[in-house]
């Protein structure tokens, strides 16, 4: 397994002797670089199964580490630590502690599907990123990400009424994430439009706030959706508890 050694060559794991001679040969400086031995005592053997239980994570076992996903990744290009291939590796190895070093950025995947498009093994890494972010929240390693708050708010509207309303999504999201409603840039946008649009259009938007768009006779669909969410939620809990149960040493440690 060549690639995981990345975690061993962090500066804190490298030992360099400023002055060292071995058998009369001067190996001072980088000639004497050693990697400190390290023992990983805390493999979570169920990690892959746990993440596979979350929406989008089910194909993670297919990965053969070609690295195409990371190479194509939109976020990797602006944040080199964002590395789907590496995270998939750590998850499959069960190296939970290593994964946690990057826990705060995993939710930032923008679902551009460049990875899923290029992956030769149909892993759908985009889904794995979402599943991993959800797993981190479920375990309490990260707070609920703004992205998850948004997904929930958006989906709530869809499940309740069949349709969403733009301004309601925006408004509820800003409130739920405790952000000011009158952000400078949003205000600038509103003013820009207000100067140009006829009153009729503004009125239409305001009316949409009161008479929210909805799909007719949605009640049964809503009930079917709610049942399904409940069933899937229970099935997921069951899967998670089964994968945990296979690891008595972890249970004991908790």
């Amino acid at each position: 397994m060549p690639i995981h050694e990345k975690s061993l060559i962090r500066p804190e794991n490298l030992k360099v002797h400023d002055k060292l001679s071995i058998d009369g040969v001067d190996v001072s400086g980088h000639w004497s670089t050693f990697i400190e031995t390290r023992v990983v005592p805390d493999y979570n053997e169920a990690l892959e199964k746990e993440i596979a239980a979350f929406p989008g994570g089910d194909k993670i076992h297919r990965c053969f580490q070609c690295g195409s996903c990371t190479n194509a990744c939109t976020i990797n290009a602006i944040e080199p630590r964002f590395n789907p291939r590496y995270w998939i590796y750590l998850i499959r190895m069960g190296m939970e502690q290593e994964l946690l070093r990057d826990k705060d950025i995993i939710w930032q995947c923008v679902s551009c599907h460049k990875c899923t498009n290029i992956c030769p093994r149909s892993v759908e890494p985009e889904g794995v990123m979402k599943a991993t972010a959800l797993w981190l929240e479920e375990k309490g390693y990260t707070p609920e990400s703004p992205s998850h708050v948004f997904d929930k708010e958006f989906s709530r509207q869809v499940f309740e009424r069949g349709k969403i309303e733009d301004t309601e999504v925006l408004h509820s999201f800003l409130v739920k994430t405790k952000q000011p409603l009158l952000q400078d840039w949003l205000v600038a946008i509103m003013w820009g439009i207000a100067k140009r649009v006829p009153v009729k259009w503004g009125l239409k938007t305001a009316l949409a706030q009161v008479f929210k768009p909805r799909t007719r006779s949605w009640k049964k669909a809503r009930a079917a959706i709610e049942d399904y969410i409940y069933e899937e939620g229970e099935a997921r809990k069951e899967k998670l508890s089964r994968s945990r149960a296979k690891q008595p040493h972890l249970e004991a440690a908790e």
Binding site: P55, G56, S111, G127, K130, L134, S147, H148, F150, D151, K152, F154, S155, V158, G162, K163, I164, T215, W218, A221, Y228, I229, E232
Partner: peptide
């Protein structure tokens, strides 16, 4: 109705 956009799949694919 809404197609699910980019959000619903993250809740239930």
């Amino acid at each position: 109705n809404c197609c699910g956009a980019m959000e619903v799949k993250n809740i239930e694919p």
